[in-house]
Amino acid sequence: MANLKELKGRINSVKSTQKITKAKQMVAAAKLRKAQAAAEAARPYAGELAKVMASLAGKVTVSESSPKLLAGTGKDQVHLLVVANSDKGLAGAFNSNIVRAALAKAAELNAAGKTVLFYLVGRKGRAPIRRAWPQAQAGDYDTTTVREAGFAEAEKIADEIVAMYEAGKFDIAHLFYSKFKSALVQEPTVQQIIPVPAPANAVVDASGAAVDYEPDEEEILAALLPRYLKTQLFGALLENMASEQGASMTAMDNATRNAGDLINKLTIQYNRSRQAAITTELIEIIAGAEAL
């Protein structure tokens, strides 16, 4: 059995760990509220844009002359996987779940004879993906310099991806991020972003009124496509942020509880050892007194 001093040391060390996990849990809870508010604030724009895109896509027929972002390159050989991770750990399996989804997709594409490239956003996904696919790095975007990824970051990422697309570096792009369902559930999600999938649920204008387009439909569509891509990336970043905080909160709650259990166990052990030491001492004294 460990001696009393060692046990005391261990109890203290677990206690300070518990303080850290508890603090991180509370920070995550506060940040989660903020991230959710940000996601909420972004909804009107995304909703409006999707509505406009849907009504436009319904009017324009996809042909050879359509913008490449919509029509595609006509091939599906090279796939770009855009993987959005966070910069910080202490969030349970949040990052590894996204990485796992991306690697599974990469293996599947590779088995089908396609070429896979990675574009990494955030710090935490870099190491495992670089290790698994050292030859397939198309680039990454560092979000560690900003406190919170915002629309400016989404814009830069989208510009870089579109530039690569226009240079013919890839044919199809998929985006990996974690969808925020609740503080307990985050779902790794994959979504095709290039060529831009036509928004489903195209709402047909019931009024049937003729809408004036200025300039014409095709030009508007071409102008809106990159914006739509940015909005999707921005949405993914926001979802990711909320998911990260949610995952972090749950993981830290578990860690705090585990630390509490461990402290209880160690305290019992400590008390038992102390009791045993006292009993031994008493026996020695009594035995000594009897011998006289």
Partner: peptide, 19 residues
């Protein structure tokens, strides 16, 4: 400020989309 000229929108304007 539309790309093809400025236009004013009052109530009851005809449906339009403009960059």
């Amino acid at each position: 400020p539309g790309t093809e000229g400025e236009f004013g929108v009052l109530e009851g304007h005809a449906p339009a989309m403009a960059a």
